[in-house]
Simulated scan of single mutants.
Amino acid sequence: MNTIGLTILVRMGNCLCARETIEINGNKYYIRDSIGEGGFSTVVLVESATSHKLYALKRITCHAQTDEKVALSEVEFHKALCHPNIVECIDSDLVGVPDLVGNKTSQVLILLPYFPRGTLHDELIRRQETNTPLEETTVLTTFRGICEATLCMHSAKPHPLAHRDIKTANVLLKEDFTPVLMDLGSTARARVEVNGSSDARKLQDEAAEKSSMAYRAPELFNVEAFCHIDERTDVWSLGCLLYALCFYKSPFEAVYERGDSVALAVVSGNIKVPDSHPYSKDVIELIESLLKVNPEERPYVDWIVNSVDQLINKSAGAV
Protein backbone atom coordinates (compact mmCIF):
# COMPACT_ATOMS: atom_id res chain seq x y z
CA MET A 1 0.00 0.00 0.00
CA ASN A 2 2.85 2.29 -0.91
CA THR A 3 0.90 4.86 -2.91
CA ILE A 4 -2.46 5.10 -1.22
CA GLY A 5 -0.95 5.70 2.17
CA LEU A 6 -4.49 5.77 3.83
CA THR A 7 -4.97 9.41 2.69
CA ILE A 8 -7.70 8.16 3.47
CA LEU A 9 -9.41 8.84 6.25
CA VAL A 10 -10.67 12.10 5.01
CA ARG A 11 -12.99 11.32 2.16
CA MET A 12 -16.52 10.37 3.00
CA GLY A 13 -18.14 11.61 -0.17
CA ASN A 14 -21.33 10.06 -1.45
CA CYS A 15 -22.13 6.52 -0.46
CA LEU A 16 -20.82 4.38 -3.29
CA CYS A 17 -21.65 1.06 -1.77
CA ALA A 18 -25.13 1.61 -0.31
CA ARG A 19 -25.72 -1.15 2.22
CA GLU A 20 -22.91 -3.51 1.35
CA THR A 21 -21.68 -5.09 4.57
CA ILE A 22 -18.62 -6.90 5.82
CA GLU A 23 -18.01 -8.90 9.00
CA ILE A 24 -14.87 -8.86 11.14
CA ASN A 25 -14.84 -11.49 13.86
CA GLY A 26 -18.63 -11.51 13.90
CA ASN A 27 -19.02 -7.74 14.05
CA LYS A 28 -20.90 -6.20 11.14
CA TYR A 29 -19.87 -3.03 9.32
CA TYR A 30 -21.52 -1.10 6.50
CA ILE A 31 -19.19 -0.04 3.69
CA ARG A 32 -19.73 3.70 3.26
CA ASP A 33 -17.19 4.64 0.63
CA SER A 34 -14.31 3.40 -1.48
CA ILE A 35 -11.25 5.43 -0.48
CA GLY A 36 -8.39 4.08 -2.57
CA GLU A 37 -6.47 1.13 -3.84
CA GLY A 38 -2.94 0.12 -4.68
CA GLY A 39 -1.25 -3.16 -5.46
CA PHE A 40 -3.27 -5.91 -3.76
CA SER A 41 -4.89 -3.75 -1.09
CA THR A 42 -7.86 -1.40 -0.87
CA VAL A 43 -9.07 0.97 1.83
CA VAL A 44 -12.74 1.62 2.49
CA LEU A 45 -14.62 3.79 4.95
CA VAL A 46 -16.90 1.63 7.12
CA GLU A 47 -19.55 2.25 9.75
CA SER A 48 -20.18 -0.05 12.68
CA ALA A 49 -23.67 -1.54 12.47
CA THR A 50 -24.02 -1.32 16.26
CA SER A 51 -22.22 1.87 17.36
CA HIS A 52 -22.42 3.68 13.99
CA LYS A 53 -18.82 4.81 14.53
CA LEU A 54 -16.69 5.30 11.43
CA TYR A 55 -13.48 3.36 10.76
CA ALA A 56 -11.01 2.83 7.94
CA LEU A 57 -10.78 -0.77 6.77
CA LYS A 58 -7.71 -1.99 4.91
CA ARG A 59 -8.36 -5.12 2.83
CA ILE A 60 -5.34 -7.03 1.54
CA THR A 61 -6.06 -9.61 -1.16
CA CYS A 62 -3.91 -12.76 -0.95
CA HIS A 63 -3.46 -15.09 -3.92
CA ALA A 64 -1.20 -17.57 -2.13
CA GLN A 65 -0.07 -18.65 1.34
CA THR A 66 3.06 -16.51 0.92
CA ASP A 67 0.87 -13.44 0.36
CA GLU A 68 -1.08 -14.28 3.51
CA LYS A 69 2.12 -14.55 5.52
CA VAL A 70 3.24 -11.09 4.42
CA ALA A 71 -0.17 -9.53 5.08
CA LEU A 72 -0.51 -11.15 8.50
CA SER A 73 2.95 -9.88 9.44
CA GLU A 74 1.51 -6.36 9.15
CA VAL A 75 -1.07 -7.31 11.78
CA GLU A 76 1.69 -8.69 14.00
CA PHE A 77 3.66 -5.45 13.69
CA HIS A 78 0.57 -3.55 14.85
CA LYS A 79 0.28 -5.83 17.88
CA ALA A 80 3.97 -5.43 18.73
CA LEU A 81 3.99 -1.63 18.40
CA CYS A 82 1.74 0.05 20.92
CA HIS A 83 2.44 3.79 20.93
CA PRO A 84 0.23 6.93 20.87
CA ASN A 85 1.99 8.12 17.71
CA ILE A 86 1.47 4.83 15.81
CA VAL A 87 -1.94 4.03 14.36
CA GLU A 88 -3.85 1.41 16.35
CA CYS A 89 -5.15 -1.81 14.84
CA ILE A 90 -8.63 -2.04 16.37
CA ASP A 91 -9.41 -5.48 14.97
CA SER A 92 -8.25 -7.87 12.24
CA ASP A 93 -9.47 -10.99 10.51
CA LEU A 94 -8.57 -13.49 7.81
CA VAL A 95 -11.34 -14.42 5.40
CA GLY A 96 -11.24 -17.17 2.79
CA VAL A 97 -8.51 -19.54 1.60
CA PRO A 98 -6.18 -18.76 -1.33
CA ASP A 99 -6.10 -21.31 -4.15
CA LEU A 100 -4.13 -20.52 -7.30
CA VAL A 101 -5.52 -23.54 -9.14
CA GLY A 102 -9.11 -22.70 -8.26
CA ASN A 103 -8.50 -18.97 -8.79
CA LYS A 104 -9.60 -18.21 -5.22
CA THR A 105 -8.20 -15.57 -2.90
CA SER A 106 -8.30 -14.75 0.79
CA GLN A 107 -8.39 -11.34 2.44
CA VAL A 108 -6.62 -9.98 5.49
CA LEU A 109 -8.82 -7.31 7.06
CA ILE A 110 -7.27 -4.58 9.24
CA LEU A 111 -9.67 -2.22 11.03
CA LEU A 112 -8.15 1.19 11.79
CA PRO A 113 -9.36 4.45 13.35
CA TYR A 114 -10.91 7.14 11.17
CA PHE A 115 -9.12 10.50 11.20
CA PRO A 116 -11.38 13.26 9.79
CA ARG A 117 -8.48 15.71 9.55
CA GLY A 118 -6.63 13.46 7.11
CA THR A 119 -2.90 13.24 6.57
CA LEU A 120 0.04 15.58 7.00
CA HIS A 121 0.39 15.44 3.21
CA ASP A 122 -3.14 16.86 2.84
CA GLU A 123 -2.41 19.59 5.38
CA LEU A 124 0.79 20.67 3.62
CA ILE A 125 -0.92 20.78 0.22
CA ARG A 126 -3.57 23.09 1.68
CA ARG A 127 -0.89 25.29 3.19
CA GLN A 128 1.17 25.40 0.02
CA GLU A 129 -1.86 26.61 -1.94
CA THR A 130 -2.24 29.56 0.45
CA ASN A 131 1.51 29.94 1.12
CA THR A 132 0.95 29.49 4.85
CA PRO A 133 3.99 27.72 6.35
CA LEU A 134 3.80 26.04 9.72
CA GLU A 135 5.26 27.93 12.66
CA GLU A 136 8.63 26.61 13.77
CA THR A 137 7.33 25.38 17.12
CA THR A 138 4.58 23.41 15.33
CA VAL A 139 7.14 21.96 12.92
CA LEU A 140 9.29 20.80 15.83
CA THR A 141 6.52 19.37 18.02
CA THR A 142 4.94 17.55 15.06
CA PHE A 143 8.29 16.19 13.97
CA ARG A 144 9.04 15.09 17.52
CA GLY A 145 5.87 12.97 17.63
CA ILE A 146 6.84 11.23 14.39
CA CYS A 147 10.34 10.63 15.75
CA GLU A 148 8.85 9.13 18.92
CA ALA A 149 6.86 6.68 16.78
CA THR A 150 10.01 5.82 14.83
CA LEU A 151 12.00 5.37 18.04
CA CYS A 152 9.37 2.89 19.26
CA MET A 153 9.92 0.85 16.09
CA HIS A 154 13.71 1.07 16.30
CA SER A 155 13.57 -0.07 19.94
CA ALA A 156 11.32 -3.06 19.25
CA LYS A 157 12.20 -6.45 20.73
CA PRO A 158 13.55 -9.00 19.95
CA HIS A 159 14.94 -7.01 17.01
CA PRO A 160 14.66 -3.39 15.85
CA LEU A 161 12.12 -2.63 13.13
CA ALA A 162 12.31 -0.03 10.36
CA HIS A 163 9.21 1.52 8.82
CA ARG A 164 10.92 1.96 5.42
CA ASP A 165 8.22 4.31 4.07
CA ILE A 166 8.05 7.31 6.40
CA LYS A 167 6.52 10.20 4.44
CA THR A 168 3.92 12.92 4.92
CA ALA A 169 1.20 10.78 3.28
CA ASN A 170 1.78 8.11 5.94
CA VAL A 171 1.23 10.48 8.86
CA LEU A 172 -2.34 11.00 10.02
CA LEU A 173 -3.33 14.04 12.07
CA LYS A 174 -5.59 14.05 15.10
CA GLU A 175 -7.85 17.05 15.62
CA ASP A 176 -5.22 18.60 17.94
CA PHE A 177 -2.53 18.09 15.22
CA THR A 178 -0.94 15.13 17.03
CA PRO A 179 0.82 13.05 14.33
CA VAL A 180 0.11 9.32 14.00
CA LEU A 181 2.38 7.16 11.85
CA MET A 182 0.50 4.62 9.75
CA ASP A 183 0.82 1.93 7.05
CA LEU A 184 3.06 -0.78 8.49
CA GLY A 185 2.93 -2.75 5.24
CA SER A 186 6.48 -1.68 4.43
CA THR A 187 7.86 -2.53 7.89
CA ALA A 188 10.81 -4.93 8.11
CA ARG A 189 13.70 -5.86 10.34
CA ALA A 190 15.85 -2.76 10.57
CA ARG A 191 19.25 -4.45 10.47
CA VAL A 192 20.09 -6.49 7.42
CA GLU A 193 23.35 -8.19 6.50
CA VAL A 194 23.65 -8.26 2.71
CA ASN A 195 25.86 -11.15 1.64
CA GLY A 196 26.13 -11.25 -2.13
CA SER A 197 24.38 -9.90 -5.20
CA SER A 198 21.28 -12.05 -4.68
CA ASP A 199 20.63 -10.52 -1.23
CA ALA A 200 21.31 -7.06 -2.66
CA ARG A 201 18.83 -7.49 -5.51
CA LYS A 202 16.16 -8.81 -3.15
CA LEU A 203 16.47 -5.84 -0.78
CA GLN A 204 16.61 -3.37 -3.65
CA ASP A 205 13.47 -4.87 -5.21
CA GLU A 206 11.64 -4.75 -1.87
CA ALA A 207 12.59 -1.09 -1.46
CA ALA A 208 11.44 -0.30 -5.00
CA GLU A 209 8.08 -1.90 -4.22
CA LYS A 210 7.47 -0.52 -0.74
CA SER A 211 9.57 2.64 -0.20
CA SER A 212 8.50 5.87 -1.91
CA MET A 213 11.26 7.26 -4.13
CA ALA A 214 11.17 10.84 -2.83
CA TYR A 215 11.77 9.59 0.74
CA ARG A 216 13.92 6.50 0.05
CA ALA A 217 17.43 6.34 1.54
CA PRO A 218 20.38 6.34 -0.90
CA GLU A 219 21.60 2.92 0.24
CA LEU A 220 18.28 1.37 -0.86
CA PHE A 221 18.52 2.60 -4.45
CA ASN A 222 21.71 0.75 -5.27
CA VAL A 223 22.27 -1.89 -2.60
CA GLU A 224 25.87 -3.04 -2.45
CA ALA A 225 26.59 -6.78 -2.71
CA PHE A 226 28.24 -6.90 0.72
CA CYS A 227 27.02 -4.34 3.22
CA HIS A 228 25.08 -3.72 6.43
CA ILE A 229 21.77 -1.83 6.35
CA ASP A 230 20.29 -0.52 9.59
CA GLU A 231 17.52 1.67 11.01
CA ARG A 232 19.14 4.84 9.70
CA THR A 233 17.28 4.26 6.43
CA ASP A 234 14.37 5.77 8.38
CA VAL A 235 16.53 8.69 9.52
CA TRP A 236 17.00 9.75 5.89
CA SER A 237 13.21 9.59 5.43
CA LEU A 238 12.76 11.68 8.58
CA GLY A 239 15.12 14.28 7.10
CA CYS A 240 12.96 14.42 3.96
CA LEU A 241 9.85 14.70 6.11
CA LEU A 242 11.29 17.53 8.26
CA TYR A 243 12.19 19.36 5.04
CA ALA A 244 8.58 18.86 3.87
CA LEU A 245 7.22 20.20 7.18
CA CYS A 246 9.13 23.40 6.44
CA PHE A 247 8.79 23.62 2.64
CA TYR A 248 5.66 21.50 1.87
CA LYS A 249 7.38 18.67 -0.05
CA SER A 250 10.36 16.31 0.13
CA PRO A 251 13.53 17.88 -1.33
CA PHE A 252 13.34 15.26 -4.11
CA GLU A 253 9.66 15.66 -4.96
CA ALA A 254 10.30 18.17 -7.76
CA VAL A 255 12.82 15.80 -9.36
CA TYR A 256 10.22 13.03 -9.31
CA GLU A 257 7.52 15.28 -10.74
CA ARG A 258 9.82 16.36 -13.60
CA GLY A 259 10.51 12.73 -14.43
CA ASP A 260 14.24 13.11 -13.79
CA SER A 261 16.32 10.50 -11.97
CA VAL A 262 15.42 10.57 -8.27
CA ALA A 263 18.13 7.98 -7.57
CA LEU A 264 20.79 10.27 -9.06
CA ALA A 265 19.48 13.27 -7.13
CA VAL A 266 19.38 11.34 -3.86
CA VAL A 267 22.84 9.83 -4.23
CA SER A 268 24.28 13.26 -5.08
CA GLY A 269 22.94 14.53 -1.75
CA ASN A 270 22.41 18.08 -3.03
CA ILE A 271 19.67 19.65 -0.93
CA LYS A 272 18.42 23.08 -1.98
CA VAL A 273 16.98 25.24 0.79
CA PRO A 274 14.80 28.15 -0.38
CA ASP A 275 16.51 31.53 -0.05
CA SER A 276 13.65 33.03 1.91
CA HIS A 277 11.96 31.16 4.77
CA PRO A 278 10.86 31.73 8.38
CA TYR A 279 12.94 28.97 10.01
CA SER A 280 15.99 29.21 12.24
CA LYS A 281 19.49 28.13 11.28
CA ASP A 282 19.16 25.36 13.89
CA VAL A 283 16.25 23.73 12.03
CA ILE A 284 18.06 23.88 8.68
CA GLU A 285 21.18 22.37 10.26
CA LEU A 286 19.05 19.58 11.75
CA ILE A 287 17.64 18.77 8.30
CA GLU A 288 21.17 18.67 6.85
CA SER A 289 22.40 16.40 9.65
CA LEU A 290 19.75 13.80 8.79
CA LEU A 291 20.24 13.93 5.02
CA LYS A 292 23.74 12.52 4.94
CA VAL A 293 24.29 10.22 1.93
CA ASN A 294 26.60 8.01 4.00
CA PRO A 295 24.33 6.29 6.58
CA GLU A 296 27.25 6.02 9.01
CA GLU A 297 27.21 9.82 9.27
CA ARG A 298 23.53 9.95 10.20
CA PRO A 299 22.44 10.04 13.85
CA TYR A 300 20.12 7.56 15.51
CA VAL A 301 16.59 8.62 16.40
CA ASP A 302 17.17 9.00 20.14
CA TRP A 303 19.72 11.72 19.31
CA ILE A 304 17.17 13.41 17.06
CA VAL A 305 14.51 13.43 19.81
CA ASN A 306 16.98 15.00 22.25
CA SER A 307 18.04 17.59 19.66
CA VAL A 308 14.44 18.51 18.88
CA ASP A 309 13.70 18.88 22.59
CA GLN A 310 16.58 21.33 22.88
CA LEU A 311 15.30 23.34 19.91
CA ILE A 312 11.77 23.41 21.34
CA ASN A 313 13.09 24.68 24.66
CA LYS A 314 15.26 27.20 22.87
CA SER A 315 12.39 28.54 20.77
CA ALA A 316 10.29 28.81 23.93
CA GLY A 317 13.04 30.87 25.55
CA ALA A 318 13.88 28.21 28.13
CA VAL A 319 17.59 28.23 27.28
Rank of each mutant, 00 (worst) to 15 (best):
Asn2Thr: 13
Thr3His: 12
Arg11Trp: 10
Gly13Asn: 11
Leu16Asp: 14
Thr21Val: 05
Glu23Tyr: 01
Tyr29Ser: 00
Tyr30Trp: 07
Tyr30Ala: 03
Glu37Gln: 13
Glu37Lys: 12
Gly39Asp: 13
Ser48Lys: 05
Ala49Leu: 03
Thr50Phe: 09
His52Pro: 09
Lys53Gln: 15
Thr61Leu: 07
Asp67Gln: 07
Glu74Trp: 01
Val75Ser: 01
Ile90Asn: 08
Leu94Arg: 15
Leu94Asn: 09
Val95Thr: 03
Gly96Tyr: 03
Leu100Ala: 13
Gly102Ala: 11
Asn103Ala: 10
Lys104Phe: 10
Ser106Pro: 01
Val108Phe: 00
Leu109Lys: 00
Tyr114Thr: 08
Pro116His: 07
Leu120Lys: 04
Glu129Phe: 06
Asn131Asp: 12
Thr132Arg: 11
Thr141Gln: 04
Cys147Gln: 07
Cys147Glu: 03
Met153Ile: 06
Ser155Cys: 11
Ala156Val: 04
Pro158Lys: 05
Lys167Ser: 10
Thr168Arg: 06
Thr168Glu: 06
Asn170Pro: 03
Leu172Tyr: 02
Leu173Phe: 11
Glu175Asn: 12
Asp176Asn: 15
Phe177Asn: 13
Thr178Gly: 07
Asp183Val: 05
Leu184Met: 07
Gly185Ile: 01
Ala188His: 12
Arg191Ser: 11
Val192Trp: 09
Val194Gly: 00
Asn195Asp: 10
Gly196Pro: 02
Asp199Gly: 10
Ala200Met: 10
Arg201Ile: 12
Leu203Tyr: 14
Asp205Glu: 15
Tyr215Gly: 08
Ala217Cys: 11
Phe221Gly: 01
Phe221Ser: 02
Val223Ser: 08
Tyr243Gly: 00
Tyr243Trp: 03
Cys246Lys: 02
Cys246Val: 00
Cys246Pro: 04
Ser250Thr: 10
Tyr256Leu: 14
Tyr256Phe: 12
Arg258Met: 14
Leu264Thr: 13
Asn270Phe: 05
Asn270Val: 10
Val273Lys: 00
Val273Gly: 00
Asp282Cys: 06
Val283Arg: 01
Val283Met: 03
Ile287Asp: 00
Ile287Leu: 02
Glu288Thr: 10
Glu288Ala: 15
Glu288Gln: 14
Glu288Phe: 12
Leu290Tyr: 07
Leu291Glu: 04
Leu291Arg: 03
Val293Gly: 04
Arg298Tyr: 10
Val301Leu: 12
Val305Gln: 09
Asp309Leu: 14
Asp309Phe: 08
Asp309Arg: 13
Gln310Lys: 13
Ile312Gln: 05
Ala316Gly: 06
